[in-house]
Every structure is written in structure tokens, then in C-alpha cells.
């Protein structure tokens, strides 16, 4: 069946891409999969067992989900009102607002993490503002902890929520809200009964995307977390670089990958993936 399709010229066009992704993504993952079941030259489930027994691993996965959940919640809290507000803007201002969302989206992840590193320093801008406003006496420890990681990741991942959510909100027929108002519904009632349910698929897709990207994050937690909070990605890196424990790193990678792919599969059922990525 596949051979038959390959015979057609069109399918040949897919071969280079499939070769690159196959050789540099699928093969390495299959290899890691095999490694994760080997311990001291024998087949074993030891590396998977450790994830349930060793408190370091349990804690790391707990922290990962906790941070990902907090970041997802914060992006929804900030992103939903932003999108709702943007809907009312005139096209020109809406274009400006969209550009403001795209600017961080285009900027290097490292540069954004660095920007927060400067802002959140002990004597950084945020602490200066907080003190001059009289909100705090002493400078707060805003980075090298979970707070720094959450602030940085919320900033970096917000566009991933806003773009699909705004696209889905734009598809909601504005006449529905006007009809509700004409029939006597208060704006609040019409929002919760009509607009919010219709925006739910976009919100869920965007929220899942933020969550799924958060649990695999490495750069931002490493720089802003300061080594005290170890997310799953850092656990993988440490196992490889500090302990050369490929089996353990592979097992953590595969569990993480399984969760990520499962969430992408759920998301794809709600909103097709290309819609999510294209925004």
C-alpha cells in the first residue's frame, strides 16, 4: 500500500523531510526507548521503578506539573481579558495590539529569559518599583526560585495562548451577543451563557498548548530557577551531564514524551493542530 503511493511522484516530495525527521528524531527516540529498559547490560524496569521510588524524581515531576499548571492558569488569567478586549478594537489598534503580541513571539527565548534576569534582580527594576511604591520594605527574592521561573515562563508562553484563543474568538458570530441583548439578557449573562462557551474550544486548545510546552521547558527554569527547582527537563540534563546515567535520562524522557504526545493528541481532537500553530 505504502509502496504503491511512493510510486507516485507527489509522495516522493515528502521523502527528504521524512528522512531528516526519521533519522534525527524518530531513530534517536527509539534508541532512547531501548536504553530506558537496560540496566547494567540486562533488561530491567529499574529506571522506571526509580521514578516512583526515588523522592528526587517524584518531587521533580510534582514541581514540573505544579509550575506548568500555574503558568497555564496565569496565561489564561492575563490572556483571556486581553483577547476579549482586542475584539472591540478598531482594525488599526487591533493590528498594533497583535504586533505587541508577536514581538516577544519572534524574540529569542534566551533574550527574553535574560531580560527577566535583569528585571528581577535583587536591585533590579521590579524590586526598585515595588520599594518606591512602598509595597515592600526589603527587596524580594524574585528569581533563582519558583517565582522567577513562573514569571519568565508566563511571559514567554502567553502568545501561545493568545494567538489561538483570539483566532477562535474572532470566529464567534457577533450577532449572537446582539440577539441576546435584544432579547433582554444583561451583558454579563450573555457573556457567560453565549460567548464563553463558544470560546471554550480555543481556550482549551491554547491552555493545553501552554501546559504541554511548559512541562518540557529547560532554558528558562535553568536560568531563572537557579538550580533549586528541578523540572523534568533539568532532571534529564543532569542525568546525562552530571551522572552519565543514560538509562535514567531515557526513562524520564520517555515518560515526559508520552505525556506530551497524549496532550497533543487531545488538543488535536479539539482544534486541528495546524490551526493552533498558525494562530
Amino acid at each position: 500500500m505504502i509502496v504503491q503511493h511512493l510510486m507516485q511522484k507527489k509522495a516522493m516530495l515528502l521523502i527528504p523531510g521524512l528522512l531528516v525527521v526519521g533519522a534525527l528524531l524518530i531513530v534517536p527516540i527509539v534508541w532512547l526507548f531501548a536504553l530506558s529498559f537496560v540496566s547494567e547490560g540486562r533488561l530491567s524496569l529499574e529506571h522506571y521503578q526509580r521514578m516512583f521510588d526515588d523522592p528526587t524524581y517524584v518531587k521533580s515531576f510534582a514541581v514540573t506539573f505544579q509550575i506548568a499548571g500555574t503558568v497555564t492558569g496565569l496565561t489564561i488569567l492575563l490572556g483571556y481579558p486581553l483577547c476579549f478586549w482586542m475584539l472591540r478594537l478598531k482594525p488599526f489598534w487591533r493590528g498594533i495590539a497583535l504586533t505587541c503580541i508577536l514581538i516577544p513571539f519572534w524574540t529569542s527565548l534566551l533574550v527574553r529569559s535574560y531580560a527577566w534576569l535583569i528585571l528581577l534582580q535583587r536591585r533590579g527594576l521590579v524590586n526598585n518599583w515595588l520599594q518606591s511604591l512602598g509595597l515592600t520594605e526589603e527587596p524580594l527574592a524574585l528569581m533563582y526560585n519558583v517565582t522567577g521561573t513562573v514569571i519568565g515562563m508566563t511571559h514567554i508562553l502567553l502568545p501561545f495562548l493568545v494567538l489561538p484563543l483570539f483566532a477562535s474568538m474572532q470566529r464567534i458570530d457577533g450577532d449572537l451577543m446582539r440577539a441576546a441583548a435584544a432579547l433582554g439578557a444583561t451583558p454579563v449573562f450573555a457573556f457567560w451563557r453565549i460567548f464563553f462557551p463558544l470560546s471554550l474550544p480555543g481556550l482549551t486548545a491554547g491552555g493545553l498548548l501552554v501546559f504541554v510546552l511548559s512541562i518540557g521547558y529547560y532554558v528558562t527554569p535553568q536560568l531563572l530557577g537557579g538550580g533549586t527547582t528541578v523540572m523534568a527537563g533539568q532532571l534529564i540534563q543532569r542525568n546525562v551531564e552530571l551522572f552519565s546515567s543514560w538509562g535514567a535520562a531515557s526513562a524520564v524522557s520517555l515518560v515526559l514524551l508520552a505525556i506530551v504526545l497524549l496532550l497533543f493528541w487531545v488538543m488535536n481532537r479539539l482544534v486541528p493542530l495546524d490551526h493552533v500553530f498558525r494562530g
Binding site: 505504502i2 511512493l6 523531510g17 534508541w31
Partner: peptide, 28 residues
């Protein structure tokens, strides 16, 4: 069906966390 399956495979690099890509390729 082949081209739809190929699409999913070609989108995979966006989904797999980079740290996993990194150690996988490093090993190979």
C-alpha cells in the same frame, strides 16, 4: 492516508521537548 500520516510525522519536531531531541541526537 500516507500524506496525512507524513504530515503528523513532519510536525513532530514542534511537539517533542527540545531537551529530549538534544540528548537523543547527542547519543546518535
Amino acid at each position: 492516508r500516507f500524506s496525512r500520516a507524513a504530515y503528523t510525522v513532519l510536525m513532530m519536531p514542534l511537539m517533542v521537548p527540545h531537551i529530549i531531541v538534544a540528548i537523543g541526537i547527542f547519543f546518535i
